[in-house]
Design a protein around this nucleic acid. Structure first.
Lengths: 255, 255
DNA sequence: CGGGAGGTTGACAATCGTCAATCAGAGTGG
DNA sequence: CCACTCTGATTGACGATTGTCAACCTCCCG
């Protein structure tokens, strides 16, 4: 990390985090100011670069400002399993940083920027400001809910349903992060990476996507662009029920 | 739930929770007393009974006092995926109860007792007593770590490795909860339930277990009794590295 | 003794993985 | 502008792991 891709910004860089944490309940002005005032360093990170490596001692928590990242584990045979995908506004390693030793790696899926916040500062604000702490805790619980859905997705759904489910989850989360429309979005990952996220091989992912396309559930002008013609049909094909994302009942996304 | 299986106990019933939460750092006497003094109701629950059902509005958090329970989800085709197994000392639905609406069910795997603690009391103690809140938060992070390992286990390991891995996890967690020895333990689940936990069918679980037995990695006098002859060999077969359980480095279990 | 749940086994089928070739598009240097 | 190269997408042929179906066994319990 050279000086050239490191910047000190104050205030506004952390706005996406505040927006995310306030989703379930507004903060007081003081809480908001404390969050925005957290010390942090903004870094530009290239595609493929690691934010955290397994077994690292984590000293910082990272907030995604732009771009996409994945958490993943490597099993003994060398295969990779992506266990989560993160986008703008999400804290990517509360998990690792509070537990001390990373049990998985976090890697960029595209180029992007992150804000690095010292670990102790996160702990301090969480317990000094109960509303903030509660919002962070709830956020980690929603992460947990998504993990559980992924276990069910990978364990008990066939390839077609699995991929359709992931495409649906992505659609809602992208929209939620202000990065796409329910009509479609650009997938920030290769078919091999999709396979790593769903427990399939890239070849089978390809066949499955083409089959979804043949059946008119999605359209693609280029390999990565996903256009969802009929949301309801795709959701049905993907056995998708958004409940596990724990979005607010009044969220227009769920209309 | 009839009156006959409901008891009011004070103090000692919550001891397993305190023991669990203190694993990563001792509490002050006041914190400990506050935890033990949490209002609660002890219930005896029969095998197969539900503690929480998906879509319930959770009003209580449950602490396992004895017996085993599972969290699970049902997918569209009716298949079931177990996403976690819980034993003595574990809080089984911080998850559901803090998020309001359950995104999965919790069901007993054996008969047992649980202590039900009102949801608000959990939130209150967590923020009134930072050390307690921190321990709870860490506990949910460890749960998350286990979820991630399960995703990798189901997504990227073959049946043999998957089952061996689960048997290893069980061995350490049973020992940790004071319910078995590293030399072996009694599995509290049927082969169909093992399949639901690993994304396999009961038939394939059976073939896999028998193969592990044939190769001398485990022994069984009865179908559910697991004796581990050579821990190292089983761990290797299961691609098992205990790091994701985030046990303390000085824990004798890791010796 | 009968019934039921769970464990065990075999024959066969299906999904998904492997291997390998080809294709398409983006970036690079001449 | 045109090779050249590289990564990722696509496709086919074939094989392996895992699922399905169905039978039978074993143990426990009333």
């Amino acid at each position: 990390m050279t000086a050239s891709n490191t910047e000190q910004l104050n205030g506004s860089a952390l706005a996406p985090m505040v927006r995310k944490l306030e989703y379930r309940g507004k903060f007081s002005a003081a809480d908001r100011a404390a969050l925005l005032g957290l010390p942090h360093v903004v870094k530009s990170i290239q595609n493929q670069h690691f934010i955290v490596r397994e077994r690292d001692k984590a000293t910082h928590s990272c907030l995604m400002l732009s771009g996409f990242s994945v958490r993943h584990k490597i099993v003994g045979t060398g295969f990779r399993q992506i266990v989560a995908i993160h986008m703008k506004g999400e804290m990517v390693d509360l998990q690792n940083s509070l537990l001390g030793t990373a049990d998985h790696s976090v890697q960029m899926l595209t180029a992007g920027k992150v804000a690095m916040i010292p670990r102790e500062e996160i702990g301090r604000i969480a317990f000094d400001r109960p509303e903030v702490g509660k919002a962070m805790w709830l956020d980690t619980l929603v992460d947990g809910s998504i993990f559980r859905e992924w276990i069910a997705n990978i364990g008990r759904r066939d390839a077609r349903t699995r991929i359709a489910h992931l495409l649906c989850e992505f659609a809602l989360r992208m929209k939620h992060a202000g990065l796409g429309e329910e009509t479609g979005y650009d997938l920030p990952m290769t078919q091999e990476q999709l396979g790593d996220a769903t427990g399939l091989t890239s070849v089978h992912v390809n066949r499955t996507i083409k089959s979804l396309e043949r059946d008119g559930l999605i359209e693609r002008v280029s390999p990565r662009s996903i256009t969802i013609g009929d949301w309801k049909k795709l959701a049905e094909a993907g056995d998708f029920d958004s409940g596990y994302l724990h979005m607010r009942q009044d969220d227009p996304l769920l209309a």
